[in-house]
Write a protein that binds this DNA or RNA. Structure first.
Ligand SMILES: [Mn+2]
Ligand SMILES: [Mn+2]
Ligand SMILES: [Mn+2]
Ligand SMILES: [Mn+2]
Lengths: 230, 230
DNA sequence: AATATTTTTTAGACAAGACTAAAAATGTTT
DNA sequence: AAACATTTTTAGTCTTGTCTAAAAAATATT
């Protein structure tokens, strides 16, 4: 009986709200870097202090979700990666739900999803998934991990890396801050639209593109935050 | 600027998860009792200790959501009542959502709703409300407070109080534990069905009723947990 | 009215998660 | 290699929410 109870509790993830936020942050930071994730990087991402991070990663290391050697940064174990991916799955599915079913704009969903991602119920998230027709991408073009935490990355490059005359489809944003998304709305740029590079300016790295059948010039900062599929 | 920020924070309720649970418990307990709600009653409802309750109600009294005099129990202020009612509103709307949109059975919704009721976003809950067509009752027949926290109580009595030959509609459950709800499912008793009292047994207060066009005998414990509208 | 019982509050402790300040380790220049 | 700068860890403190044990107040019983 003892065994069964502890097993049951293991199924629905036994991590606190705060622990989940750390796992998710380390997961996101770990995708890009090949080495361990540094204490400072985690602190910055979570807007907390490095000393708080040290405390927490010690605790998470004891729980076997990450590997920690003093002064060496951390990396998630397989269990840690899966746990984090399932939180990301929930975050992104909730974002789709908010946009598709509840009339949220794509710049309004993140903060609410930050809360909803911590709700513990596998039936809940799987039913949301089904209600939405098992979407593969969230409103910002980010891929949604499956029930096992696996996620198939798609080939994509930043608009800023395209050459003159290259074309592609706008499939995601790198920066999904409300201000950037609102800027895109104002310019009537949306995911799914075709893009063609017409000119590139060496001086400030701005580009002239054709998108949504309109010609426009975008700064390097913009081009650096739009993902294009070739 | 300072003013605006603090005003904004006031809009989306500045209570912790734990404070919200206390407010809701006191709200539920306060509906029945005309006097203040006792420390022990709160402790029992929240499965915590009386000393913890004393600590928390002092804090909530300072926040002006309840009135507390030592040894006299507590009662919610108007602000406290509204705050609590809006949490109850969220709980019940989420329950409807889970049943109507996500294929949850009425015995599966409570624990998930206990989590979802703490999500802070007025747009979220109002959109859920709209998606559901502004329901007035949750899956257990409990009324859903409106956006101002007002709730119109409906005339209802327990099945156990009906006399022989009286009829009515089954509109709610008093005990909404999973085991009771599962029992009702097994007996094919559901809300909305017509009930007629055929016999009452003095010895054990059991009743024979006609419900869903079937004759059946129910114990007093059952009859004491089913609400009937005349 | 005195005594016993129950309820409530106080006092002191603890765990989680955060912070500051200072020490230690690592990395970078000279 | 030594000095300087940065990163990370440690030590100690704080807040929130909980607990146990003991004291105080309110109720109930004799
Ligand atoms: Mn997001
Ligand atoms: Mn997203
Ligand atoms: Mn419920
Ligand atoms: Mn209910």
């Amino acid at each position: 009986m003892q065994k069964i109870i502890s097993l049951h509790h293991k199924l629905e993830s036994m991590f606190s709200h705060s622990e989940e936020n750390y796992l998710k942050a380390i997961y996101h930071l770990g995708i890009t870097s090949v080495n361990g994730v540094s204490t400072n990087a985690i602190a910055k991402k979570l807007s907390t202090k490095a000393s708080s991070v040290t405390d927490m990663i010690k605790k998470l290391a004891e729980k076997k979700v990450l590997i920690y050697k003093k002064y060496q940064g951390v990396s998630l174990t397989e269990e840690g990666k899966k746990t984090a991916a399932l939180i990301v799955r929930k975050h992104r599915l909730w974002e789709v739900f908010l946009v598709e079913k509840l009339n949220f704009n794509w710049d309004e969903v993140h903060d609410v999803a930050e809360q909803l991602e911590h709700i513990k119920s596998s039936k809940l998230i799987n039913e949301i998934d089904a209600l939405l027709g098992f979407p593969k991408f969230d409103p910002h073009g980010d891929p949604i991990p499956d029930t096992n935490g696996n996620l198939h990355l798609i080939e994509k490059k930043l608009l800023s890396t395209l050459q003159i005359n290259e074309t592609g489809i706008c499939i995601g944003v790198k920066d999904s801050s409300a201000s950037f998304l609102q800027f895109l709305d104002k310019q009537q740029i949306a995911l799914g639209q075709e893009v063609e590079v017409l000119e590139k300016e060496d001086f400030d790295d701005s580009m002239t593109i054709k998108i949504n059948n309109k010609k426009m010039t975008v700064s390097n900062k913009i081009a650096n935050n739009l993902y294009i599929q070739k």
